[in-house]
Amino acid sequence: MTRETEAARRQRLRAMDGQCNGFASRRAARYLSAHYDRILAPSGLRTTQFTILRKLALAGRTSISGLAELIAMDRTTLATNLKPLERDGLLTVQPSAQDRRARMVEITKTGLKTLDRAVPLWQSAQDQFEAAYGVEEAAALRSALRAVLDTDLAPWAE
């Protein structure tokens, strides 16, 4: 490989850092999740676990597929994330009475108590982010990120 070709490759790869939407969103998500994780730590929950419990508290009993759709996560990753919450008694996963192949997820009373303890911590993390980033800017960011979900990219299509 010639020196010019190597230099051109490096330049092209460097340019991607500023253009890659996937990298930019993942980098920001890791940064922001670490902030929320740090603040939520006293509750024993991580950001993803908090979100799962919050969505279950709102949705009630739902299928793993339904929950995966609610939080925009593939079913396999969600199932992995449910295991420690089930082990700790924060939710239950049981076969559906209507379709034994489907698995239903439900938050437990212990899960609701844990969520109730975590909500003020989440609010603190939220308030800190909005103070640093801006309330209007944070609302615009959430709106833009929701719009990403409407792009019909079908990331988990089989």
Score class of each variant (00 low, 15 high):
Ile71His: 11
Gly66Asp: 10
Arg30Lys: 00
Arg26Glu: 12
Leu91Met: 14
Asp88Met: 05
Gly66Pro: 10
Glu86Phe: 01
Arg27Met: 07
Leu53Ile: 09
Thr62Pro: 02
Thr76His: 14
Asp88Asn: 15
Arg26His: 14
Arg54Lys: 06
Met73Glu: 06
Ile52Lys: 02
Thr77Arg: 15
His35Val: 03
Thr47His: 12
Ala68Trp: 04
Leu58Met: 06
Ala72Asn: 12
Pro42Glu: 12
Arg87Cys: 00
Ala72Lys: 06
Lys83Asn: 11
Arg61Ile: 03
Leu53Pro: 06
Thr47Val: 11
Asp88Ala: 14
Ser65Tyr: 12
Ala57Leu: 04
Ala59Val: 00
Gly66Arg: 09
Thr47Asn: 08
Ala34Phe: 03
Ser63Thr: 15
Asn81Ser: 05
Arg30Cys: 00
Asp88Leu: 13
Pro84Asp: 07
Arg46Trp: 04
Glu86Tyr: 08
Arg61Pro: 08
Ala29Tyr: 09
Arg26Lys: 14
Ile71Glu: 06
Arg87Gly: 00
Leu70Ala: 15
Leu53Gln: 11
Ala72Cys: 02
Leu70Cys: 09
Thr80Ile: 14
Gly44Phe: 04
His35Ala: 04
Ala41Val: 02
Leu32Glu: 06
Ala79Val: 04
Lys55His: 06
Asp37Met: 04
Thr80Met: 09
Leu78Arg: 10
Ala79Ser: 15
Asp74Ile: 12
Leu45Pro: 01
Leu70Arg: 15
Gly89Lys: 04
Thr47Leu: 13
Arg38His: 11
Ile71Ala: 06
Ala34Trp: 02
Leu90Trp: 13
Gly89Arg: 03
Ala57Met: 09
Ile64Asp: 00
Ala41His: 10
Asp37Cys: 01
Ala79Gln: 08
Ala41Trp: 02
Tyr31Ser: 04
Gly60Asp: 09
Arg38Asp: 09
Ala57Val: 00
Thr48Cys: 01
Leu90Asp: 03
Leu85Ala: 10
Glu69Pro: 00
Leu53His: 10
Asp37Ile: 00
Ser63Phe: 02
Leu32His: 01
Thr62Asn: 00
Leu67Asn: 10
Leu53Asp: 05
Gly89Pro: 02
Leu85Ser: 12
Ile39Lys: 09
Thr80Lys: 13
Arg27Ala: 13
Lys83Tyr: 05
Arg61Phe: 00
Ile71Arg: 09
Arg54Cys: 02
Arg46Ser: 10
Ile39Met: 06
Arg75Phe: 01
Asp37Glu: 04
Ser65Phe: 08
Asp37Arg: 07
Glu69Val: 14
Leu82Ile: 14
Thr47Trp: 08
Thr51Trp: 04
Arg75Cys: 07
